[in-house]
Amino acid sequence: MTTRSWLTHSRTAAVLLPAIGLILALALWWLATIVFSIDSYLLPDPGDVLVTFLDQPGYLLKETGVSLVETLEGFLLAIVVGVPVALLIVRSVIVERLLYPLLLGINAIPKIAIAPLLVVWFGFGQWPKVLMVLLVCFFPIVISTASGMKSTPVELVELLKSLNASKTQEFFKLRLRYAMPQIFTGLKVAISLAVIGSVIAEFVGATSGLGYVITQSGASADTSLAFAAITLLSIMAILLFYALVLLEHLLLPWAQETR
């Protein structure tokens, strides 16, 4: 095996390469703080961030938990609402024409603009955060599900027709299953946005969560704390994303080969 094919095909390399990328980035960051002798209240070095985290790991992990729950709740809600909406869009041209511009319009609104309104309507509890996550996740889920179901090959649709399958059978036995790989693509986009959504909502009106930690540390110029919170956010986003990738591998073993 050549070095190149080892780097692209082996499993060890698949884990090793991302780790090396991460370590390189951290090293560059550290190097930058030393070479340009940047003050730690402007840009703390990775060591400072780690120390800050180790000072109060319980507190930070608890706040991470709050953000994680909001993110997951909003994300799941977006699936529960988004998939049926996509189904309606695929099933009826009328619904598609009625809803599409509306969906596009809602998606085009900068979500930060709605955040204060959500607080006005739903208060400071968990609801405005969950709804914000729902709002940002909804669109990619609907679009990917709808386009996935529409991309079903003609011969498969004709096959089911020739077997006298009902519309319901066509949807559940064929279209939805066929759309799964594309739905997963939408879910992966959505989960990354979901994390952003929950933080935006926490910025505006919250008493807990990582977004709240970041605004608080900004107010007291505690840059290392902000960085610790941001790092936790990134880790959370990365883990959620790879959890979906893993789920896809387990649920759709056929999809990796057919694509």
């Binding site: 090959p153 011969e155 004709e158 096959l159 006298n164 999809a255």
Partner: peptide
């Protein structure tokens, strides 16, 4: 479409999963 008539296509048209 009738139950006692079957149709075979140019492509295999198998459900990949």
């Amino acid at each position: 479409p009738r139950r006692d008539v079957s149709f075979m296509f140019q492509r295999p048209a198998l459900l990949p999963w």
